[in-house]
């Protein structure tokens, strides 16, 4: 069963000047995680806001848990949890205040709200910080609290808009394990991200979006195969480029790509290919300045799907300076 289904969503801003969504369709199977992967400005937040009933599309339709988001937004709100790109909690209040307040707004009643708040604080490792104002929290703690706030009534569908953007590696790791745990609990999740690695870690299925529309859809494995998995990258002195290109091409089986002094090509057997390349370089008496395996990034995905690297939508161009918000 499709728990989330969006069909032909179109959303424009500024009287049609900015096309945030351009015929976007996607769906999420019950109990699975869909990763919506795209660069800044691709339309991720707009999609989430429409599905979470915060925004009405210009055209198209969408259902969440079988409920039409445009016709019955109030019913949709009863079954969803939303954790936004920017932590949406009251910063002047404590973590505990916030969760109790949200519990009350879910009509849990006083005692139940308090119990649930304590339970969630415990679970997200925030008990110690419970009585401190959010302003004293780290980025990771804030995100965890925001996530906790969206789980108060155990939603059927959870929307996570860039849950780790702006976090340090440690915070990101923590957040990942929290989300993974949730997923095992059976909730259906739509999560957006700019990181292929994150989608790979968390999602069963990935939809790549660019300029408001889905340009690829598939499992993480399928996508990576298409992109070419890991890449071997070697940086050498100018005089060694030609020879290195030859070696890399041989090891990889694909023609190597040269960008200034860096030679790269997709490889299948990661470290074994790396060793082989090293040996060949050594025999040729070439001393690489830098050598390594690089996991494919969003840029690589875009390069292979569209032939160009991911372009951030240039906001300067569409939004007049004086009206811009920081």
């Amino acid at each position: 069963m499709k728990t989330v289904e969006a069909k032909h969503l179109v959303k424009t801003y500024r009287n049609g000047e900015v096309k945030a969504l351009n015929d976007l369709s996607l769906d999420v199977e019950e109990g699975t995680v869909l990763g919506v992967l795209g660069p800044n400005g691709a339309g991720k937040t707009t999609t989430v806001r429409i599905l979470a009933t915060l925004l009405k599309p210009d055209s198209g339709s969408a259902t969440v848990a079988g409920i039409d988001v445009i016709k019955h937004p109030e019913k949709v709100r009863e079954v969803i949890g939303l954790s936004g790109q920017y932590a949406a909690v009251d910063e002047t209040l404590t973590g505990w205040d916030n969760l109790v307040m949200f519990g009350r707004l879910y009509h849990l009643g006083r005692q139940k709200s308090v119990d649930r708040a304590n339970e969630l604080l415990e679970r997200f490792d925030l008990t110690e910080a419970a009585k401190r104002p959010i302003t004293t929290y780290s980025g990771g703690m804030r995100r965890r609290l925001d996530l906790a706030a969206s789980l108060i009534v155990r939603p059927k569908v959870l929307f996570l808009d860039e849950p780790t953007t702006g976090l340090d590696p440690r915070g990101r790791q923590d957040m990942w394990s929290v989300i993974q745990e949730l997923v095992t609990g059976g909730v259906t999740v739509l999560l957006t991200t700019q990181y292929l690695e994150e989608a790979d870690q968390l999602a069963d299925d990935i939809a790549v979006i660019d300029r408001g529309t889905v340009i690829a859809r598939g499992t993480s494995d399928a996508l990576k195969t298409q992109v070419g998995g890991e890449k071997l990258e070697i940086t050498v002195e100018n005089i060694d480029i030609a020879k290195t290109q030859e070696i890399v091409t041989r090891v990889s089986g694909h023609s190597a790509y040269v960008n200034t002094r860096t030679v790269s090509a997709p490889v299948v057997n990661g470290s074994r290919d790396l060793m082989e390349a090293l040996r060949a370089l050594d025999e040729a008496k070439i001393h690489p300045l830098d050598i390594g395996l690089r996991r494919p990034s969003l840029d690589d995905v875009f390069l292979s799907l569209t032939g160009h690297v991911a372009e951030e939508v240039n906001e300067e161009a569409v939004i007049p300076k004086k009206g811009r918000k920081k």
Partner: peptide
């Protein structure tokens, strides 16, 4: 609104 709190409130069944 700026803090996103209104978004949160609007996503709740209130």
């Amino acid at each position: 609104m700026k803090k996103g709190l209104i978004d949160r409130f609007r996503s709740l069944p209130i």
